[in-house]
Design a protein around this nucleic acid. Structure first.
Lengths: 188, 188
DNA sequence: TTTCGACATGTCAATACTGACATGTCGAAG
DNA sequence: CTTCGACATGTCAGTATTGACATGTCGAAA
């Protein structure tokens, strides 16, 4: 279960309330890495606190509680990050949609690929703006974390855009409307 | 819930048994797009059959049941694919790990980035081999589906490799061991 | 001073998913 | 003719996640 590690990671960068964390999950972090709503964040923070991997370091107005990672939490996070990347959860409905494009007829394929290209271009442009507002390197993990996320996202969007363009171009001439079906081929 | 659409998509390419589908989820399909085990696939096929989006078209040895998509299922799938890509599930523990690199100290960062670069290089090489075994274009959705997946995966791995290299190089000289912490900055 | 939007946390029922357990069959190699 | 690995499907308890409901506060602008 990676929500706990996502929370530990964000808290390792700097203390935050559950509300802060929920907002970050709505931004890049949740767009590329791991999405979660407040309904799963608050209970998880409670569990992490019970395991003493995080702790409440401040209580503010409106009953807000600021959490910080503990040394034990930091160690747990480090172990998880350094663990060789074997299996892991991968579930991405956007990628799923891309993979299924070939089952559409050519007109629909073109429409979808064009939409993907457009969306990737727009998202990349947006990230470039974001990146320009982050100082190149001040050495602190707080801005580093955001910059890394943005740079990774930008690279992915660029790759997606180029792939969509290439695939769209490759569609070129052939006008097969409903291609033949055959026995199952390994999706590989 | 996208598992149903993943199944519809695979069945739209060609009929298959639950066992076939489970195997495909273990390959590229599950590595990039949507992972699922047989314990969720079999019940879901049952539900799809109850909704008449798929149907059993053949029963073979060992009690195997071959499913195919129905016209209604095809329409449902098309609607889902053509729906403008607003929100969707994104959950990827590999990407999560990458995003959290900055919370490590520099030695650990270097180690992780090197491992990521290596792994992405190896995965890309593997995919290149796979791609060379798929005929360039025979127009049928069965091989197209696999080729698209492989091409997309290759593009992503290349982007990841380059990003890891760049980030590793950017780490360069500075020897900050435990960078200062500060108030929460938006991860953006 | 009222009003309203952002802040802030929570619960809960329904749904989805995982890992383990369970069962059985077919075909090929020895 | 036996053995064994791949084929093949299922269930189930425990866990994770979602979407809706619920509640209340602070600060700024009108």
């Amino acid at each position: 279960m990676s929500l706990s590690h996502a929370l530990l990671g964000l808290l390792a960068a700097s203390p935050a309330t559950g509300y802060d964390l929920a907002r970050e999950f709505e931004r890049d972090f949740g767009r590329y890495a791991w999405q979660a709503g407040h309904a799963s964040i608050y209970p998880e923070l409670g569990k992490l606190a019970a395991r003493e991997l995080v702790q409440v370091v401040d209580e503010g107005p409106r009953g807000s509680k600021t959490y910080d990672i503990t040394p034990a939490g930091r160690e747990e996070l480090r172990q998880w990050l350094l663990r060789p990347p074997g299996s892991g959860v991968v579930r991405n409905s956007h990628v799923l949609r891309m993979f299924l494009i070939p089952v559409l007829d050519e007109d629909d394929q073109r429409a979808m690929l064009a939409a993907i290209e457009e969306q990737a271009t727009a998202a990349a442009a947006e990230l470039r703006v974001v990146l320009s507002t982050i100082p190149p390197s001040d050495g602190s993990p707080r801005s580093e974390l955001g910059r890394l996320a943005a740079e990774f996202g930008l690279a992915q969007y660029e790759a997606t855009r180029a792939w969509a363009r290439r695939t769209l171009d490759g569609l070129g001439g052939s006008a097969t409307r409903t291609p033949a079906r055959g026995p199952r081929a390994s999706v590989r």
